[in-house]
Amino acid sequence: MIDEQRLYIIWIYLQAEPLFWLTLTIGSYLIADFIYRKSNLFPLLNPVAISVLLVSLILIFFNIQYERYFEGSKFIHFLLGPATVALAVPIYKKWDLIVSNSKAIFISLLIGSVFAILVTYLLSLYFELPKELILSLLPRSVTAPIAMGISEIIGGIPSLTAIITLITGVIGASLGIFVFDLMKLKNMDARGFSLGLASHGIGTARAMSKNKNAGVFAAVGMGLSGLITSMLVPLFLKIISIL
């Protein structure tokens, strides 16, 4: 015979501590990652999307406030900052490649990053989106920890930016190949770089799984666009506020 009263008291105790929420978050991620690998890295089964869905379903099912969950899982959230700093290492390791292709990389980087911001802004205006939403959309093509940092500084909603960034990555990784084929782009380095620049880590993982060189260029594109976009977005906002 299970004593429900006792179980309830234990639950009240556990849900107030991070232990349960950390275990739930990591467990969901492991399940999602397993599914993703089994599917041969199918982009629409992105592990973040699946694990976010899993955790959300559990919270909704047990009627738990998001704030309670976030309070418990914030140790994981905290690591986003250190992870951004850690991005210095892969960029450092690819430094020779960046230097030897500097002309092609920097011109494409500048045009691509400016274009990503501009097209997002113009489309948002076209759809008459509210300002807070536009600000959350602007940094969407760069890696999520950087995008969230930009969003926070310019007055967007960082958590919304995180999801927008995730969708951007999934779209780029799954549909990028059709764009390249349509435009008859054959150069693997160019394809990879473009994927990294426009759809960050998820695009990079996709490029890596298709072609080693493309993957390396994607990593370079992702790292550099993250850096330059964090300077370009605030600059862009200054310019349009003057105009």
Binding site: V48, L53, V55, Y66, Y69, I76, L79, P145
Partner: peptide, 16 residues
């Protein structure tokens, strides 16, 4: 483990 780090905020958006 970068993908894991987005789960807490990601859940926030689904809930909101």
């Amino acid at each position: 483990y970068l993908p894991l780090l987005f789960i807490p905020v990601g859940v926030g958006v689904v809930m909101h």
